[in-house]
């Protein structure tokens, strides 16, 4: 009888997975996702594309917060940098869209490096405030650097063109996001298995101990900020192509807090947790919208204030989740898996 899951060689340890069933399910999931736009209407395809785009940014945030233990409330700032970099590069400098996506990631990574510098001296709440300040600064720069960013009027962006094909439809943006998300997941999983990922985990668990073991805190902390910002920048770039219009209102501070709630609900330090968290929060939002819509359509007094209830319901679900399942959905999944793997000896 199987009494646990043991990895017995280094090769197995660096493999993405040593479980063929898991691999098969992963490919089936990708296949299902690839077929989804064929059965979904334009609205739901657009919601799913938003899930995929958000997941790219959230994986980046989870690498920083969940894996490296560096809190950030300023990821809306990196998202804004990515979106505006794409808008400026494609609309004002006619840089091809696909190159602009990559460049936007690198530009956001550069800002990540700048924000990361204070992280060498700050921890916890102090770091949270510093990163939040970054998001505020970015918002003010966008509003005031009118010649570059069009100020609060915002930017209208042409659809992404690749070899004459226009990514105008929701399905095309969905497929683009899916491809980039798959690459992001593979990249993040491999990073976590490399010496970089192990160094990040070391820093998260005990930075002084990690330093004693020879891990260069400066290099790895800054790298975590840069990689995280890179993914957020890429997400911002695709978001710009999806929306075709960006302005400062799309990157409020609340977005950074919502992003943190996604990784907490999904599971800190877990790539699949990041994706599950995004799905949970975005679809919860839709579920609340549909539920409140039922009452809103009745035309009664309740319909007047029902939309205010949305935020309340949304908040209550998250609070209850954190109270009863602080390890997130992936934590619960691990518990269930362990229970059945070790049954009847689970305790």
């Amino acid at each position: 009888m199987r009494s646990g899951h043991f990895i017995e060689s280094y090769d197995k340890l660096v493999n993405l997975t040593d479980n063929p069933v898991k691999m098969a399910w992963s490919w089936i999931l990708v296949l299902v996702l690839a077929l989804a736009p064929l059965v979904l209407d334009s609205f739901w395809t657009s919601i799913c594309a938003t899930v995929l785009i958000t997941a790219i940014g959230i994986i980046g945030l989870n690498l920083l917060v969940g894996t490296t233990g560096q809190i950030s409330l300023g990821h809306s700032g990196f998202l804004a940098v990515g979106a505006y970099a794409t808008a400026i590069l494609t609309m004002d400098y006619q840089v091809p869209g696909i190159i602009a996506i990559l460049l936007s990631g690198f530009i956001a990574a550069f800002f990540g490096l700048i924000v990361g510098i204070p992280s060498l001296r700050l921890k916890g709440l102090y770091l949270a405030i510093t990163t939040m300040a970054f998001a505020i600064i970015i918002n003010h720069v966008i509003l005031n650097a009118e010649d570059i960013t069009r100020g609060s009027e915002g930017f209208i962006i042409d659809p992404l063109q690749v070899f004459g094909f226009s990514f105008e439809s929701d399905a095309s943006i969905y497929y683009l996001s899916l491809i980039i998300l798959v690459l992001t997941v593979l990249g993040a999983l491999n990073l976590m298995r490399s010496h970089i990922g192990r160094a990040w985990v070391g820093i998260r668990d005990h930075d002084i101990a990690a330093k004693v073991m020879g891990i260069n805190l400066t290099t790895y902390k800054l790298l975590a900020f840069m990689v995280s910002a890179f993914f957020a920048g890429i997400a911002g770039s695709i978001l710009a192509f999806q929306l075709q219009y960006i302005n400062v209102d799309n990157f409020s501070l609340l977005l950074g807090i919502e992003a943190l709630s996604m990784i907490i609900v999904g599971g800190l330090g877990s790539i699949s947790g990041s994706i599950v968290g995004v799905i949970f929060i975005i679809f919860l939002n839709e579920l609340v919208r549909i539920t409140t819509g039922i009452f809103a359509d009745d035309g009664g007094t309740m319909s007047l204030y029902i939309h205010e209830m949305k935020g309340l319901l949304y908040g209550v679900v998250i609070v209850l989740f954190l109270r009863f399942e602080p390890d997130g959905i992936m934590g619960k999944w691990r518990d269930i898996k362990n229970y059945w793997s070790n049954w009847p000896f689970h305790h």
């Binding site: 609205f43 915002g154 929701d170 960006i246």
Partner: peptide
């Protein structure tokens, strides 16, 4: 909710759905 990205999503819903 006065968020442009959400306005676009809702416009899409109202038009296509």
């Amino acid at each position: 909710g006065y968020v442009p990205a959400r306005t676009r999503q809702m416009a899409k819903k109202l038009i296509s759905k």
